[in-house]
Design a protein around this nucleic acid. Structure first.
Lengths: 236, 236
DNA sequence: CGGAAAATTGATGCTTTTCAACGTATGTGG
DNA sequence: CCACATACGTTGAAAAGCATCAATTTTCCG
């Protein structure tokens, strides 16, 4: 997924090595366009777009959540990323979509025709550079996710996942200790490279250690953020 | 790593889902600059640059091979990518390097000051778009590698790794059945998310099945490409 | 030739997967 | 309003795959 880094849609993928500095580029042009772009409603489990589709829009998630994933020929699925309110998906200049984008809950997205974007980019070198920057950030994020998922244990992965969502809440001036999970265990598992059973067991382990509480499966309350952090960083 | 897709430096990361179409953009400008850029010699194990370094050059590998990696605080290493002759590394607009780049063998790289590149990009929107495209391709490659490494078995990963190198040889009009491995088992392991022992055992397994022969550890001869392919795709 | 680094091989153990059963929430139709 | 169906989540036992530890062999280079 691609995004243009701004105050309200900076994404956090858990950079364990060297977190990139926050940027607050104005980016008025694309936001103005997006604000005027029409909304589209997508039911939970429906797709915003699929791999191979001709790329006709750039989307910004307004409400809800979108899961970006790829599938191997034998059906194994890898979730590349989740996009939440404010995040832009499908930015870029390719002719076709390279991922599947599925709403994990009822979602509304703003749809900006790519023609508007590519026109802007070819006329305005600064805008094109901004797009480069955005893609560079996204590249950095995917690399960090690669490092994280390949090298770390189930505990570390899920702990980090929760902390990333917590930090996101913080940035939006929401309670960082209460985390809504707008996706299934299968989505989380396919994101972290784990089975649903392992995800569930690891949640249970966190509960048993007094790190979190879980309400109805979808709401996590962080009890001991410090200890959760140390587990995410490899304690035990 | 970033690269500008051209005939001689198209990278293959094993797209299992939907391989992007080959592009043969002329890209004369950057190549002209690179051809005139000075060569730098780097000993095996020496670094071309390190994470956090101010980004001052864009490099093109002339001969040898470079390994791009990140390290977790506890020392676990993830190789993001290998760059071979013709590949461009460190393309992008960030102020600092986000990866470590280490020569795996004696290597020569051409060094183009970033000032030349950024000047070009800000003056020429088409060039900026090309850079976007290059980064988009790179993003796609990292995503594919993510899918591959997270979802697949040791056999599939190493088999795919060999086939990717084989296909690369084919593109360069070299023997696709003879593969030079200009890196250690540790480098391969950190790329594929495996230990050196598992890499070694998997090579031995391929040998035992009559799929490959190995000379002195660094030269692989593919005997049964079809069977190797089917194993890389998940047979057994 | 000799020493160090790299690679291989073996034995063992641990983490996660797999398979299976059961529990829980949600929504529908009688 | 309740029975039922269905999707989702949890828990358990067993097994697979890979990592770890350790020893040996091979390769590389001065």
């Amino acid at each position: 997924m691609l995004m243009i880094r701004e105050d309200y849609n900076v994404r956090d993928h858990g950079n364990f090595v060297a977190p990139p500095p926050r940027r607050q580029a104005p980016q008025t042009s694309i936001n103005e366009h997006l604000a005027r772009a029409p909304l589209r409603c997508v039911e939970a489990k429906d797709h915003v777009f699929s791999e191979g589709d001709p790329k006709s829009y750039v989307y910004q998630v307004a409400t809800g959540a979108v899961c970006l994933y790829k599938v191997l020929p034998d059906g194994r699925r890898q979730v590349i990323d989740f996009a939440y309110g404010g995040d832009i998906i499908s930015l870029g200049l390719g002719q076709v979509e390279t991922c599947n984008a599925q709403a994990t809950v009822a979602t509304r997205v703003r749809c900006l025709p790519v023609s508007a974007l590519s026109g802007l980019a070819s006329r305005d070198p600064v805008f094109a550079l901004r797009m480069c920057e955005a893609m560079s950030d996204e590249l950095s994020a995917v690399r960090d996710h690669l490092v994280s998922v390949v090298q770390r244990s189930a505990t570390e992965r899920l702990g980090t996942f929760l902390l990333v969502l917590s930090r996101r809440n913080e940035r939006f001036y929401r309670d960082p200790l209460t985390i809504e999970l707008p996706m299934t265990r299968a989505d989380i598992g396919d994101f972290l490279g784990l089975t649903i059973e392992t995800v569930s067991r690891t949640f249970t382990k966190f509960k048993g250690l007094g790190l979190i509480e879980i309400n109805q499966g979808t709401t996590i309350r962080i009890i001991d953020a410090e200890k959760l952090k140390s587990m995410a960083d490899g304690a035990q």
